[in-house]
Simulated scan of single mutants.
Amino acid sequence: MQEELDIDMENFKALSLPKYPRCQGLARPNILMFNDGSFNDSRYFLQKQSYKNWLKPLEDKNILLIELGAGKAVPSMRMFGEDFCKKSKARTLLRINPNECDFPKFFRNGIGLKMKALEALEMIDSLI
């Protein structure tokens, strides 16, 4: 079941949450959690294949991946960006984080900006 949500964009909050049609209880988000047997991975695999198809013609192109606010507490996004950029010298990771913008010791394709995300994006936009 996929449902569109009404979002208050100023405060970035959902105005209503999805409910199960039968019991009207709060619906479970389809996110993967630890030892999660209820995760429906069919959409995940479709999205992963779509991503690979999108990326294929860009393999030999210069790519700048911008990572915003990904900290070390849950490192999955940091690892994604680092792994993506390790695969080619033409890929660079711009890590924007006010507290944790560093890279592993032997990572060579990275630039760290110790800034808040919006502040950094506005600065980049002013330079374009």
Rank of each mutant, 00 (worst) to 15 (best):
E3N: 08
S126M: 05
N35T: 09
F80G: 01
M115E: 12
W54T: 11
P75M: 04
G69E: 00
D125E: 07
K52Y: 06
M123Y: 11
I124V: 14
G110P: 00
D8I: 07
Y20W: 08
R22G: 11
C23T: 07
K72I: 11
D102S: 10
Q47A: 10
M1C: 11
T92I: 11
F107L: 09
M9P: 09
V74I: 14
R28E: 10
F34V: 11
F103M: 04
L127G: 00
N99V: 11
F80L: 15
G69S: 01
G37V: 02
S76E: 09
Y20T: 04
A117G: 09
F106S: 15
M123A: 08
S16E: 14
F12Q: 05
K19E: 13
D102E: 12
C101M: 13
D83G: 08
M77G: 12
M77E: 01
I7Y: 04
S88A: 10
P57M: 07
A73S: 09
L113R: 00
K114E: 13
N109R: 13
A120P: 00
G112S: 02
I7W: 06
S126Y: 07
Y51D: 13
N53L: 09
C101S: 14
K13G: 01
S16T: 15
S88T: 06
A90Y: 01
F34N: 12
C85N: 03
L58E: 11
N35W: 11
M1E: 10
R22P: 03
D102R: 07
L127N: 03
M9Y: 12
L64V: 04
F80V: 10
G69R: 00
K87E: 10
F34L: 15
N35H: 12
W54M: 12
M33I: 14
N35P: 08
S76V: 07
M1D: 12
F106Y: 15
P29W: 03
I7H: 09
A117F: 03
S50Y: 07
L32A: 01
I124A: 02
S42M: 03
S88M: 13
L113W: 13
C85L: 03
P29Q: 13
Q47Y: 07
R108S: 14
F45P: 01
N11C: 05
M79A: 08
L26T: 05
R108N: 10
A117E: 10
E4C: 08
L32G: 03
G81I: 00
S76Q: 01
K13N: 04
P29R: 04
L64K: 08
S126W: 09
L46K: 08
Q47I: 09
L65P: 00
F106M: 12
P57Y: 02
D60E: 15
K61I: 06
P21I: 05
K52V: 00
L127D: 01
L58K: 08
K86C: 03
P29H: 02
M77H: 09
E119D: 15
P75D: 01
